[in-house]
């Protein structure tokens, strides 16, 4: 009886977090994923480790999918999240990024030298059916890039 109570309580708690469906006496826990609408891949790029305003330059990331230029993120400070959304067919894809920074003197953005580009500057990822893939790119102070992926939930 005690075990049953603990199980039910745990199930209720989980149902708060995800979604749940009741079928007879059994409770099945399921995730509620957002369906793609207009885009199914989102890149979020930022450098959260920056804590010195003089190093926090305006920048954007140029995005290449399968070796073709797809577009760019919006412009923002390096420490801020920059977004780029795209729609890709379900498949395995190659994402490559190129960082451009503001040259304030010449009032234009210039490509960051290769040596300073985030490394690695690419990631392979899968796009399943009916999922929105979110790829978060975090770049640390040394230019080391970390990619994490998730499927966008409701």
């Amino acid at each position: 009886m005690t075990r049953q109570c603990i199980f039910i309580a745990t199930a209720l708690l989980v149902s708060f977090i995800s979604g749940c469906r009741e079928t007879g006496d059994n409770i099945v826990i399921i995730d509620r994923y957002k369906s793609p609408h207009g885009y199914n891949v989102q890149l979020i790029a930022h450098s959260p480790g920056i804590d010195d305003p003089s190093l926090d330059r305006r920048c954007y990331y140029k995005v290449f999918i399968n070796k073709m230029e797809e577009g760019r993120t919006e412009t923002a400070l390096d420490s801020q999240k920059k977004y780029f959304k795209m729609s890709l067919p379900p498949n395995r894809h190659l994402l490559r990024v190129e960082k451009w920074v503001l040259d304030e003197k010449n009032e234009k953005y210039v490509k960051l030298n290769n040596i300073d580009q985030p490394k690695p500057g690419f990631i392979y990822f899968d796009v399943p059916e009916n999922r929105i893939v979110t790829i978060e790119l975090k770049v640390n102070r040394d230019g080391k890039a970390e990619y994490s992926m998730s499927h966008e939930k409701e």
Binding site: R58, Y60, R72, T75, W100, Y109
Partner: peptide
Amino acid sequence: TDPLGYII
């Protein structure tokens, strides 16, 4: 340019 007028 971007919103601030810097050339992209």
